[in-house]
């Protein structure tokens, strides 16, 4: 028998998690969960403009049942872990898929955001860890004392340090980039087909959602720095 055609040896098919499509579906679902969190988190944080009392009350409300809080946190942690695990595995696979690189390669249609997912992701992760250490744990809190329970104070004090605000703004912009592609990519990976015309609309929608979310978040450190929120 010739081998120049195809092998007859049959393999077991890769399962859901082994397939790139399966991993991307996992990333889409976990990404969706994380986006919902980002929206909720923003809506809560915007209460800072309503003054210390309501903001702190909101923070307290989040803690009204620790079991429930931890269930939600677990969901988020699992999502983050799966999202990263899938991304990391795909990244490795993608490196292997092109062992010899092009000497020259132009990007013709892809957005800057979509091409930078692999480094906007890790930076956002580092930011989230920093964020948790600063505002949830209170381990990093330069320039002032962390007061558990007085979230309003912690936020205002934290953002009063210019470089912390700068780091937040930078990271949030990257999160925006990540969301801009992620929101659209999620639909594709999960398998919600759209015609080419609708694709354009949806991509624009994804951009605006990302802009609005990030503008909302960034407004807080800026307000603190400019003294709007004291």
């Amino acid at each position: 028998m010739s081998t120049s055609a195809v092998a007859v040896s049959k393999h077991r098919a890769p399962g859901f998690w082994q397939s790139t499509n399966g991993k991307k579906i996992v990333m889409a679902v976990t990404g969706c969960i994380l986006i919902l969190f980002i929206i909720g988190h923003l809506l809560g944080n915007l209460l800072i403009y309503a003054g210390p009392a309501r903001y702190n009350a909101y923070a307290a409300f989040l803690h009204f049942d620790d079991t429930l809080l931890w269930i939600i946190r677990s969901v988020l942690i699992v999502s983050v872990v799966l999202h990263i695990e899938a991304a990391a595995q795909l990244w490795l696979r993608n490196k292997r898929a092109r062992p010899v690189n092009y000497s020259r390669k132009e990007a013709i249609r892809s957005s800057y955001a979509s091409r930078t997912m692999y480094w906007s992701g890790p930076i956002v992760l580092a930011f989230v860890i920093f964020h948790l250490l600063e505002f949830t744990g209170g381990f990093i809190h330069p320039g002032s004392r962390f007061i558990a329970g007085d979230v309003y104070h912690n936020v205002v004090a934290g953002f009063s340090v210019w470089w912390i605000s700068a780091w937040y703004i930078f990271s949030l912009c990257l999160l925006g980039l990540h969301l801009r592609h992620g929101l659209w990519s999620m639909l594709q990976s999960f398998g919600i087909p759209h015609s080419r015309a609708r694709e354009v609309v949806l991509k624009r929608l994804a951009l605006w959602i990302a802009v609005v979310l990030i503008a909302g978040y960034i407004s807080i450190p800026i307000s603190v720095l400019t003294g709007l929120v004291k």
């Binding site: 790139t20 696979r93 292997r96 898929a97 892809s110 997912m117 592609h181």
Partner: peptide, 13 residues
């Protein structure tokens, strides 16, 4: 997925 192709990241190139 058995072939050594990479994954789709939906970027549209």
């Amino acid at each position: 997925n058995t072939e050594p192709f990479g994954s789709c990241t939906n970027i549209g190139e």
